[in-house]
Amino acid sequence: MDSRYFTEEHELFRQSLKDFLQKEVVPHIDKWEETGHIERFIWKKFGDMGFFGIPYPEEFGGLDLDLFYTVILLEELQKINSGGFAAAIWAHAYLAMTHLNKEGDQAIKEKYLAPSIAGDMIGCLCITEPFGGSDVAGMRSTAVKKGDTYVINGSKTFITNGVLSDYLVVAAKTSPELGNKGLSIFVIDRDTPGISATKLDKLGWRASDTGEIAFDNVTIPASNLMGEEDMGFPYIMQHFALERLIMGINAHARAEFALEYALEYMKTREAFGRTIDKFQALRHKIADLYTEMEICKEFNYSVAYRLNKGEYVVKEATMSKLQCTKMSDEVIYQCLQFLGGYGYMEDYPMARLSRDSRLGPIGGGTSEILREIIAKMVIDKKDYKPAT
């Protein structure tokens, strides 16, 4: 236990979570990976255990706990070897629900946040568009004010929980002439007329339902606007720090899982009369990979500590996602190699890990975009500020 970040209470929570995942989730993972459908009962069980309410106010059924409980949840979700299941959970709890909590008014929180915490509703966050990718400011979806309603038109893609969720948190342009200063955020019920969704067939994250969503003259009450009109871009940017740190933490956790599994395999696999963990070439490679993983993990804990104190760590979180997802891909590639032919077999975890990990440098902002964002901060001295 690292006493700088984790208390005894944290560790008790970790053990309780591990037990829950092994009992309630792991027996179903292979089926969900095959069908691409996470059964509804598990959402309610997560809600009953309080896992969706970790950072949220007690007023709405949350636990109002510090960020290191979230770190534990993310780490342990990566160690059951289903990036898709993990993504479905954290996309609901930390993408959709973060906007509800931060920008939603009392009525929205009562209608959507409270049942989301309870596991009775599932949410998704709809930002990425078919023509936009990482270019949030270039989105084309529009929300036109008509009396006491907004009419939404456009499309979104690569949306985790995009097919099976109960509500959608959607970014659209309310003032297209203002560019990125004309975005707004809305919450929309799934059964609103004009919404259609198509499930996408992915290389990895097979358990999660990733969708392309179309909005055809979707009319919603003006009260479904979250926060102020035309303030969507700073809201999104503000929450990107958490999203990027989440993906950095996911990366160090799955790399650690891969290394631990590979080491256990190498302790029993014999070649030329000895176990392969005794060969110097492999030992030194393991040493390098462990070093890279531990450096990333320690950096993530440091950034989480600062974010937990309320600091605006967008630069550090961006660095976390960039470096940790790169590290994870390299670690898992090498761990698959350590298993030899067995690493390539679906009966062993490395094949799925390899597919799931590859999304790390793509989702939530590609590595290429992140490098430019970091360059703007460290070279051009651009100062990103939180939404006020």
Rank of each mutant, 00 (worst) to 15 (best):
7 T>G: 02
83 G>Y: 00
177 E>H: 14
68 F>H: 08
246 I>H: 01
5 Y>L: 00
56 Y>I: 01
103 E>W: 02
23 K>A: 15
280 Q>Y: 11
11 E>F: 03
323 Q>W: 15
92 H>V: 04
245 L>K: 03
97 M>T: 02
55 P>H: 02
99 H>C: 04
385 K>I: 05
96 A>L: 00
307 L>T: 02
159 I>F: 12
104 G>Q: 01
339 L>C: 11
294 E>P: 03
33 E>M: 06
307 L>W: 05
82 S>R: 02
137 A>I: 04
205 W>Q: 12
305 Y>L: 10
57 P>Q: 06
75 E>S: 14
252 H>V: 12
15 Q>H: 15
343 G>H: 10
246 I>E: 11
5 Y>H: 06
38 I>V: 13
153 N>I: 05
342 Y>H: 09
83 G>S: 00
236 I>E: 05
98 T>Y: 08
99 H>K: 03
163 V>S: 08
310 G>V: 06
41 F>C: 10
188 I>T: 05
320 S>M: 01
174 T>S: 15
163 V>R: 08
107 A>Y: 08
381 K>V: 06
286 I>A: 08
140 R>L: 13
373 I>N: 04
28 H>M: 03
258 A>L: 02
74 L>R: 09
54 I>M: 13
272 F>R: 09
238 Q>I: 03
240 F>T: 12
9 E>I: 05
200 L>W: 07
52 F>I: 01
326 K>A: 14
206 R>S: 11
298 E>N: 11
274 R>Q: 14
229 E>D: 10
272 F>W: 00
1 M>W: 07
285 K>G: 03
3 S>D: 15
182 G>V: 00
254 R>C: 15
219 T>I: 15
371 R>H: 10
385 K>W: 05
343 G>E: 09
211 G>W: 01
228 E>V: 06
86 A>K: 10
203 L>N: 13
141 S>E: 08
27 P>T: 08
206 R>L: 14
333 Y>L: 13
324 C>Y: 03
292 E>S: 11
23 K>W: 07
319 M>L: 05
287 A>V: 04
299 F>P: 06
185 I>Y: 07
289 L>K: 05
369 I>P: 00
177 E>C: 07
47 G>I: 03
70 T>E: 14
182 G>H: 00
296 C>W: 03
384 Y>G: 07
119 G>E: 10
166 D>S: 02
383 D>A: 07
297 K>A: 12
41 F>K: 12
221 P>S: 04
203 L>S: 12
275 T>C: 12
212 E>L: 11
77 L>H: 07
177 E>P: 12
264 E>G: 12
372 E>S: 01
118 A>H: 01
106 Q>V: 13
386 P>E: 01
366 T>Q: 13
303 V>C: 07
47 G>S: 08
230 D>A: 06
183 L>N: 13
318 T>Q: 01
166 D>E: 10
81 N>S: 04
146 K>W: 06
178 L>K: 13
178 L>H: 03
77 L>E: 13
26 V>E: 14
354 S>N: 11
313 V>G: 01
6 F>K: 06
191 D>R: 06
320 S>F: 02
278 K>R: 12
129 E>K: 02
196 S>E: 15
167 Y>L: 09
155 S>E: 15
10 H>C: 00
19 D>E: 15
171 A>I: 10
165 S>N: 09
218 V>I: 10
244 R>S: 01
